[in-house]
Design a protein around this nucleic acid. Structure first.
Lengths: 294, 294
DNA sequence: CCCTCTGATAGCTCTGGCGTATCATGGCTT
DNA sequence: AAGCCATGATACGCCAGAGCTATCAGAGGG
């Protein structure tokens, strides 16, 4: 049995007239009769009563008509669904992100994308930058939000923008009152730093800042995620250098101050497999690129 | 697009290997490649990634696979459903009945049929015998339970059994104490009779009884349904002659007594279209015939 | 009694689905 | 590095079968 048989049967059942049904199907009447006969033989059941005065459905024919319509609808739906997935209108998207990006632009991207493509399901996973590279290669995620430098075979890392580093101080710190902070004045401070393996971008920026100021850091604690570092600052353990966007994390006991002197930035990037992307990915990337100022 | 394309695609998607899929489909590999190409061209979307090391599904391909399986399932289901309807295992049955039969064997038939064919939906309509003949011809009902004589073109009326007429008396009637009642002793009674149009069987039986006893009836009221007649007996309006099976209608203020002398019976019959029956009908008829004693 | 309408049948054509043979390409082995 | 073996794609011929035209058979209706 083929869909042709179902299409023909539905046409005859609707017209209750072989010649008219054949016209509708753009074939002549004899092959239509033949195909219906073949169908009835295969089902093994009489579906139509021909009584010289038009056609009538048997009880089995009525039941089959409903099911045949459903089958044809399912076939159309299969095609439509595949097309929509191919056009990125429908599908699933797994997104990885490092903790520090959830206070910046990522939530904005996600909200905008959900509005534009309400039928794309988004799954979020918090991962470090290097974990994201592995997850991208293993196809566990399709897009990653992370901070370079980071690289892996088959993965494109595309910087979306740069943002300055600011310093997070305990609220009761003497320098908390200054509009800008000179790194050299932090010479005696304990510093909470990020692990170079897990947050290479921020770790390198911190090193640069301190080296440029000729400061040898007293490392109070090495942590994996920026929000953790800010938590430790709040508890008075030391100061931390963090990306500007983290200022939206208004934690009691912490103040953020811009740095005096040469501006030090960290990059914010999106990463994706260079090949074998689901179609939704390119739509998401375009949205993210459009959302950041050139 | 034909079901063939879906079958082939599902096989390839499951095997992830053209040659093995072709074996499973009992065709050779080249036509399988061709058909899949045709399918992809028609859908307009790449469904499979061939990369020299087996085959992989695209996102669209995964979505299409699920839909294709569903479509194939729907096609199988269409065939199975038509067959089940043709075998009377599934379907709908409209049954007409006259009021007096619902106190006899009909409920028993219905219960037994529902147990045997739980997937046949039964709709019940209370109709007089002649209304049932019209409804059968108009295909509004498929089976009727009624009391002959009644006839119409294209309708078979098949007597299932006969049952004796008994008399329904008000409980305070002088004859209520007798084990049997002689009709001649009802010479002076008001009688509730049934309309010959609506209940020809019982009306004729009543006429016969009275004529045989030489009684000229005082007709108190003519009614359409036997239960109505019994209601009037309960109110003391008169006596009525009713089929024995109505004795299961235990109405306060009414007693039933068998008649003395020659036994007068009414028939109980099932009626159906001689042709163009839904397949369930014959199953129901066989059950009804088997349920009555020969 | 003929005419007209229905769906079915006959016989032919030709498309297209399938087969065999072969190609192109990439990974693996040696 | 070269050859081998696997993959899926391509080339091409064959023939089943889907479709066509012409015709038949039977039932109403005028």
């Amino acid at each position: 049995m083929e869909l042709r048989h179902l299409r023909y049967f539905v046409a005859v059942a609707e017209e209750l007239h072989f010649r008219r049904a054949a016209e509708r199907l753009n074939i002549s009447q004899p092959p239509l009769s033949q195909q219906i006969q073949t169908l009835e033989a295969e089902v093994g059941v009489q579906l139509l009563l021909r009584d010289r005065r038009g056609v009538e459905l048997t009880a089995a024919g009525k039941a089959f008509l409903a099911e045949a319509r459903h089958t044809l609808g399912a076939a159309d739906h299969a095609v439509a669904t595949a097309r929509r997935v191919a056009h990125g209108e429908l599908g699933d998207l797994s997104v990885g992100f490092v903790g520090s990006t959830m206070y910046g632009r990522v939530p904005e991207f996600l909200r905008a994308f959900r509005e534009e493509r309400s039928e794309v399901g988004i799954r979020l996973r918090e991962l470090t930058s290097s974990e994201q590279m592995d997850a991208l290669q293993a196809r566990q995620i399709d897009i990653g939000f992370l901070r370079p430098p980071v690289a892996a075979a088959g993965i494109t890392v595309e910087t979306l923008f740069e943002e300055p580093i600011v310093v997070a101080l305990p609220a009761d710190h003497p320098l908390a009152g200054s509009p800008r902070v000179d790194v050299r004045r932090l010479r005696e401070e304990a510093i909470v730093t990020l692990s170079p393996q897990d947050a290479p971008g921020i770790a390198a920026a911190t090193d640069n800042l301190l080296a440029a100021a000729g400061v040898v850091p007293h490392v109070a604690q090495i942590v994996t995620e920026v929000p953790t570092a800010i938590g430790l600052v709040a508890s008075g353990l030391g100061v931390a250098f963090v990306p500007e966007s983290l200022m939206t994390l208004n934690r009691t006991g912490v103040v953020y101050r811009p740095l005096a002197g040469r501006r030090q930035t960290v990059r914010f990037a999106v990463a994706y497999r260079t090949r074998d992307q689901p179609p939704v990915v390119s739509a998401f990337l375009e949205l993210a690129r459009a959302a950041v100022p050139t």
